[in-house]
Design a binder for these strands. Structure first.
Lengths: 208, 208
DNA sequence: CAGCGAATTCAACGTCCGTAGAATTCAACG
DNA sequence: CGTTGAATTCTACGGACGTTGAATTCGCTG
């Protein structure tokens, strides 16, 4: 008799080895926020998806709002990704075409898609996510714009950026969230060719 | 003492005259769904905004899902609005410019704004709203497209429509939901001039 | 091996939710 | 005037939610 009351492992307590629960929770949170938006996602469902007790979520991240903030922290710094992408532009492709191609490459990269969907889905419901998205867009668009903004009337710059934002935002939502058939199935190159000139127009064209 | 137990009007029971509660509930639902999305909006908050007991909401519309469906029923039939708008196109403006101008006029019309926000906010969270939005966009875009689709390779038609959808969707979200400053403040005419040529490109331009 | 801190679960609290049923009042029609 | 049906509120149930505190186990340091 080896103390049968202790033989059945009590389920509580710390686990052996590196469980990776903290990361698992964050990934589960991204998926749930992406699928249901901020209100629709529940801590209990996130915990279940991560194979973990709901209280552990609270232990690591405190409140739901803080977990959301942590989940929205982009795995890629936008400014870095942008400048890196701009650096390797091939000659022969316009800046607009290159921007679309780079954005799609970034969005298609593994691990980014969930964050993107979560961000978009939540941005329309949570003001915090909306602010984050506005900041991200401003940073991601004003950079390229500044590099070609000579000769255009300066007070129109933010207007141009906002126009670009509408097209890129619509592309992201249509392709990754709403699933507009043809746009969701088209290849990044096809889309870059179709949409690139539009971005060029907003960058430097005559918009008044 | 004039029967004090009866003097205080019991709060239950039917009210005199036409209370308009059913309509009030629907309008309150639109506002709440617009502000919080499908999950975030609560029947109790909708009832409170309508000045009504939550049970009355249930009495009129049954379940929350059915109330949502009723609230999403557009006050304007899209096909009617579209054909009416197309009819009165002024000469000298391109079809794309006219589409943007008409869409903005429709969106700015009183009573439409709430529905639009509710639709957009919910479309990214509720699959039903997403389907409604896809249908609406298909109907609203394929019509104008068909009127100029001669000479373009026919299997690209739905691709063109989807591209237009991304730009119009991005415009609506950026202007009415996320509030991209310059785009939110610009006049419909300004936007029509800036964006119209983009729609023209997607309608008939070279996109491959 | 003793002890401390971190990880993990359990059980529970209080709150809000959507919904249901019964009760009450009004309007309309005979 | 009596009856019927619709409008309206009250009360309440069961469930899910976010959060908390205590208890348990592990890893690490000395």
């Amino acid at each position: 008799m080896t103390t049968p009351a202790h033989r059945t492992r009590s389920r509580t307590g710390r686990r052996s080895g590196d469980s990776g629960s903290k990361v698992a929770i964050l990934e589960a949170a991204r998926v749930q926020f992406a699928e249901c938006g901020y209100h629709g996602a529940t801590i209990r469902a996130i915990a279940a998806r991560a194979g973990v007790d709901p209280a552990l979520v609270h232990h690591f991240y405190g409140t739901k709002e803080r977990l959301f903030a942590a989940a929205m922290e982009l795995p890629v710094t936008p400014s870095e990704a942008i400048t890196a992408a701009l650096a390797k532009r091939e000659p022969g492709s316009s800046l607009g075409t290159h921007m679309v191609r780079s954005a799609l490459a970034l969005w298609e990269s593994p691990g980014m898609r969930g964050s993107l969907q979560a961000m978009l889905r939540s941005a329309l419901t949570s003001e915090q996510a909306a602010a984050t998205l506005r900041d991200f867009m401003a940073e991601a668009i004003l950079g390229p714009l500044a590099s070609v903004a000579e000769g255009t009337s300066p007070d129109r710059t933010s207007y141009r950026a906002a126009l670009i934002a509408t097209q890129m935002l619509g592309l992201a939502v249509g392709r990754y969230v709403l699933g507009f058939g043809p746009v969701a199935e088209a290849s990044p190159d096809e889309l870059a060719i179709a949409i690139g000139p539009v971005i060029d127009r907003y960058l430097t064209g005559d918009i008044s």
